[in-house]
Design a protein around this nucleic acid. Structure first.
Lengths: 267, 267
DNA sequence: CAATATACCCTTACAGCGTAAGATTACAAG
DNA sequence: CTTGTAATCTTACGCTGTAAGGGTATATTG
């Protein structure tokens, strides 16, 4: 929109040094239409870009090189195209990030309908945590992203349905959702980016120092490792679920059936 | 066009209406004689850099412009020095980040000694959460940072002492610490960077869409706002604390006194 | 006092980032 | 064929962190 201070067009080179009849571009393009029709590659090799292909490549990049490793130029290389070509499908990196978040939460399955409400929450917590472990490097982005794109609000709505089943009152259902989310989010983040995996300090202390100076930490450290992730998560998760189940008991009987005088479509 | 936007002058004074000495070229040459003895600023005005001064400025920058707003050049401007001067005190941005994390956790106070163990944990959770709200934009860095610098392991050791008091057995104490951390971390992150505050989608859905298509979310949304942060946090926090308190009961009586045959210094 | 040593600060330069602007190509339709 | 549109590529700008090296201020010497 705004013209940058009179951009130097190629006119600079064209007018002054006219020795660019076709320029390096053309010469390189003698490879012609590049990959596809040229002699330097089998015809038909060029697969057209698509949002799906870009998202797949981006996910792979993130898991291989971390979130900062997802750059436009690297993405282009991975896709066999130029960096800017991606921008035709995702107008900015943020749009791409949104798509990645969407892809991640799309993998969170629906619990079997015959489970009782608390068991459904247990299932969903497991699904969310599994998603975090499926995309460990991407997960911080998912976790800190506002879910206010269409797929995001749909996801929240879906979750709230299950929480309403467990705690049929607007306020408590909302709070139970939040509380549940706090725990699962914190656990998944810590497991993927926290004490065992996250970005390290510039000058970390040595294990010998810990062994010598931090007896409690030395004793606890084994239980912070991967092998104990499941049991630790479950221990706290059951505490959470039990607490949420007990919230229902605090409701007056009438609220346990119909949260409010207002009628709302069930789904 | 050789020199673009051009080096910031000694902006500390320049902001207040400096006697712009000359162009950058002159500044390199004659002005290079520079600040202190030069005619372009009152002598003795230059406050020497220090780690503390840099950390303070960095914290302010982060809270004002977010984590990505903490750049070497901006930091230099804020400090009235050149970007690279900071590198003499912090050899890389990561070292600076470590210092910021240290600063944040240093503000987490010790609970009164006369509280019983569970009350001490409640106090500490509140302290941690208060820290997150004191540095909301910095907090994601704190939360995802491995605490493996000296001050970090000291902090963990300190926490573990209190968890050992509440659940006197190595494994359960470690797990209680983890579980407690999951919840507090998730809550603090969500409150500072989550649904209400975090980075938004590129094309967020409108409130009208939510009102129309997501009845449960529309009903829950008010309870996701700031005004309910405290009560929601407390609701889940008490569930957590109660669960941790009950962990102690699962211990055999002997473990409740001495966790292991090994003797360990108490503090 | 002068000379040197050290700590501190500045300048320049570079590779890489997201992306704005425009040129170029591929392909479908008339 | 020409023409229009969608996709891709090229170039360039302003930003980033930081490596390398030059300059100055101050403390410590002789």
């Amino acid at each position: 929109m705004r013209k940058r201070a009179d951009t130097v067009q190629r006119s600079g080179a064209a007018a002054a040094g006219g020795t660019r009849p076709a320029g390096p571009a053309a010469s390189r393009r003698a490879g012609g239409a590049r990959i596809k029709g040229g002699a330097d590659g089998p015809p038909g090799l060029r697969v057209p870009l698509s949002r799906e292909r870009i998202v797949d490549a981006a996910l792979e990049l993130v898991e291989d090189h971390g979130l900062p490793g997802l750059t436009a130029r690297r993405l282009g290389t991975a896709l066999g195209c130029e960096a800017m070509s991606v921008y035709h499908h995702f107008p900015s990196q943020r749009h791409l990030h949104d798509a990645l978040v969407e892809h991640a939460i799309a993998g969170i399955g629906e619990p079997p309908a015959d489970l009782d409400p608390i068991d459904r929450l247990r299932f969903l917590g497991g699904e969310y945590r599994a998603m975090a472990h499926r995309y460990p490097r991407l997960f911080p982005l998912v976790a800190l992203h506002r879910l206010n794109m269409p797929a995001g609000v749909a996801f929240i709505e879906r979750m709230l349905r299950h929480f309403h089943a467990a705690v049929p009152e607007d306020r408590l259902a909302a709070q139970a959702f939040r509380i549940f989310g706090y725990y699962v989010l914190g656990a998944a983040l810590d497991e993927t980016s926290g004490y065992a995996e996250g970005p390290s300090a510039a000058v970390p202390v040595g294990d010998d120092f810990i062994a010598g100076e931090c007896p409690l930490l030395a004793a606890a450290a084994p239980f912070f490792k991967r092998a104990h992730f499941d049991s630790t998560f479950a221990l706290g998760f059951e505490i959470m679920l039990k607490g949420i189940a007990e919230l229902r008991a605090t409701l007056p009987a009438i609220a346990r059936r119909s949260p409010k005088p207002v009628v709302r479509p069930k789904a």
